[in-house]
């Protein structure tokens, strides 16, 4: 067997000039078409994550679309609720989780999904996330981690790795970054997963599994901000950064980690880029603690009797 050589000749004979019907994207019904093209930079990982979410709710779960609410905070990622044609809310800075808690307590049959960035949920909204995880409120949190404050122009964020050059740390960052999955697990999340934007299908399946899970589920998506983070650290464009994610990812399961959460740390070398990104489903508690809205119902019943 000899492999076919890659050719660069353009073949236009397969083009259909009078198409038999009007074609539209499979997820066009779930998008607000007047808002597209999106405002994101070419090659941004947020668009891919939105597509993975839409794939999850159409293919891998049976939750009806009327029962899903998309809530987002401030930042580039905050615009996700404006592009998805479901019930949604664009909350104020860092307060996406309090709004979702209210939705869940008022209507326990509704599944709130939060799509927001690391700057929104882990710098200003950190306390809300910790307390929502502690109460085990039934919601799905999708954090798109691009390791920088992208919208405001590339300042140093709590997720920026040591030594990385940013606008506010021109000689390299000194302090250590957060490990977001570790924080969520430590505060009591009952489902935790991490994937990079390169792994589209496992990401979609993990989102669906998190939505089917009763309780606080946390999904971290490692994304590329090639405009503000990659450019200053010589990581190249969107294609180069995604190829780096492909090389650096290490698939881990619950057994590999064995409750030693330091194994899930992301490694970054100055001048080289990401050298190790552990991905996979880190935690799924099957003997779950009772979630918050059920407890409220139980408390009412005790009061009545």
């Amino acid at each position: 067997m000899t492999a076919k050589k890659k050719t660069n000749e353009i073949d236009t004979s397969t083009m259909v000039k009078n198409p038999p019907k009007k074609f539209h994207h499979p997820y066009d019904e779930l998008l607000r078409k007047y808002a597209i093209p999106t405002i994101y930079c070419p090659g941004c990982g947020i668009g891919t994550t939105i597509q993975a979410f839409l794939e999850a709710i159409t293919k891998y779960t049976d939750i009806p679309h009327e029962n899903i609410v998309v809530i987002s905070g401030i930042g580039c990622t905050g615009r996700a609720s404006g592009y998805i044609n479901l019930d949604g809310f664009h909350a104020i800075h860092g307060r996406a989780i309090p709004f979702a808690s209210g939705v869940e307590i008022a209507r326990p049959d509704i599944k709130p999904v939060i799509i927001s960035g690391d700057g929104d949920l882990f710098s200003i909204g950190m306390g809300h996330l910790a307390h929502a995880a502690r109460r085990n409120i039934d919601m799905t949190v999708i954090v798109i981690n691009n390791s920088i404050y992208g919208l405001t122009g590339g300042q140093d964020a709590p997720t920026t790795p040591v030594g990385a050059l940013t606008k506010t740390t021109p000689y390299g960052k000194i302090s250590y970054p957060f490990n977001l999955s570790q924080i969520a697990i430590a505060n009591g999340a009952t489902f935790c997963a991490r994937y990079t934007v390169y792994e589209f299908t496992p990401l979609a399946k993990a989102i669906a599994r998190g939505m089917n899970h009763q309780g606080f589920s946390f999904i971290e998506v490692i994304s590329n901000c090639h405009v503000n983070f990659g450019r200053r650290n010589n990581l190249g464009d969107a294609i180069a950064m995604r190829k780096q994610f492909k090389k650096a990812r290490v698939r881990m399961t619950e057994k590999d980690i064995n409750k030693d959460w330091h194994k899930t740390d992301i490694e970054f070398k100055v001048g080289v880029g990401f050298t190790k990104i552990p991905t996979g489903i880190f935690l799924e508690e099957k003997e779950r603690p009772i979630e918050f809205s059920e407890r409220i119902v139980n408390a009412y019943e005790i009061k009545k009797s």
Partner: peptide, 12 residues
């Protein structure tokens, strides 16, 4: 189709 962030390429 899956890597496109802008929903610009798809298969029917």
């Amino acid at each position: 189709e899956r890597s496109c962030p802008d929903f610009a390429i798809f298969i029917d």
